[in-house]
């Protein structure tokens, strides 16, 4: 943890230097890295893709996970079995998942192409087409994350006292009313937690874009380039440590601001 504390300021420091890995000399260059980065088209693509990634994934994964949690909560038999099924991707390595889906997405020979052909749907070149590549990867991260968030929701649901629902039923509240007036308010803290966790993990998408994008660097045409991938590329392939640090600082600010805003907007205390 000390390492992490000291690493933070170091990142800030590097972001003001013209630090290139293979050169010994390092100079203070003020905000040059930042102006350089902000005018770079790759940065624009990465920023846009990262925001799209979070904007698409967070609402879908939250709603689906809540739905699965509600279903799991409502059944009695085989609950453990189903819970396990949905949770499995959480313990699977991203590399294995990425390879399997890359195989499923394969043009011409992939299973998804076969299914589309059988259903007489137009062919989609999932990872090969700049219009669909990012969405194809987002779909995989939704699949992989859903069970984890469902388990968190389930724990929250199990905390809500049964009596509240019984009382509401006696008063003649419909299922939808019970959901709106009891479940959602009492689940508020869990909901905020899931949204924040999903947001952070969406912003940090690296493994899947690195392994599933066409060239490993956010292709085709930078359509799957995300901020973490850009940091990695700048620092360890272009060897521009200073510039990469500047992107990292901007990225950190994004994560921080997004989390703080959400806490402000979403947290409401309910006491019953």
């Amino acid at each position: 943890m000390f390492v992490n504390f000291s690493a933070m300021p170091t990142s800030f420091l590097f972001s003001f230097e013209d630090y290139v890995t293979i050169r010994a000399e390092r100079n203070f260059i003020g905000l040059d890295n930042y102006t350089n980065v902000v005018s770079n088209p790759s940065f624009h693509a990465a920023l846009r893709n990262t925001l799209v990634f979070a904007g698409v994934r967070v609402p879908i994964v939250t709603v689906l996970a809540l739905g699965i949690a509600l279903l799991l909560h409502s059944i009695r038999r085989a609950k453990g079995l189903f819970r396990m099924l949905y949770f499995i991707p959480f313990v699977t390595s991203g590399v294995a998942i990425a390879w399997v889906f890359k195989f499923l997405y394969l043009p011409n020979f992939g299973l998804f192409t076969y299914i589309f052909d059988t259903l007489k749907l137009p062919r989609i070149y999932f990872l090969g087409d700049p219009r669909t590549a990012l969405m194809s990867i987002i779909a995989v991260t939704i699949w992989a994350g859903i069970g984890y968030y469902a388990i968190i929701f389930l724990a929250g649901l199990e905390d809500i006292p049964e009596e509240l629902y019984e009382a509401a039923m006696v008063d003649g509240a419909s299922a939808w009313q019970r959901f709106r007036k009891i479940t959602i308010p009492l689940l508020n803290r869990t909901l905020v937690l899931v949204i924040v966790l999903a947001l952070i993990s969406s912003l940090q998408s690296f493994t899947f874009v690195r392994l599933m994008s066409k060239d490993g660097f956010g292709g085709p045409l930078s359509s799957t380039l995300t901020m973490p991938l850009l940091i990695y590329k700048e620092a360890f392939f272009s060897l521009q440590m200073g510039r990469a640090s500047a992107i990292a600082v901007i990225f950190f600010a994004m994560v921080l601001i997004a989390t703080l805003i959400q806490r402000r907007l979403l947290v409401r205390e309910f006491e019953y």
């Binding site: 390492v3 992490n4 000291s6 690493a7 933070m8 170091t10 990142s11 590097f14 952070i200 912003l203 940090q204 690296f206 901020m227 973490p228 940091i231 990695y232 620092a235 360890f236 440590m241 990469a244 640090s245 990292a248 600082v249 990225f251 950190f252 994560v255 921080l256 989390t259």
Partner: peptide, 12 residues
């Protein structure tokens, strides 16, 4: 709260 992406450069 600090993302790993921010730390890898100083670590490295």
């Amino acid at each position: 709260m600090i993302p790993t992406e921010m730390l890898i450069i100083p670590w490295y």
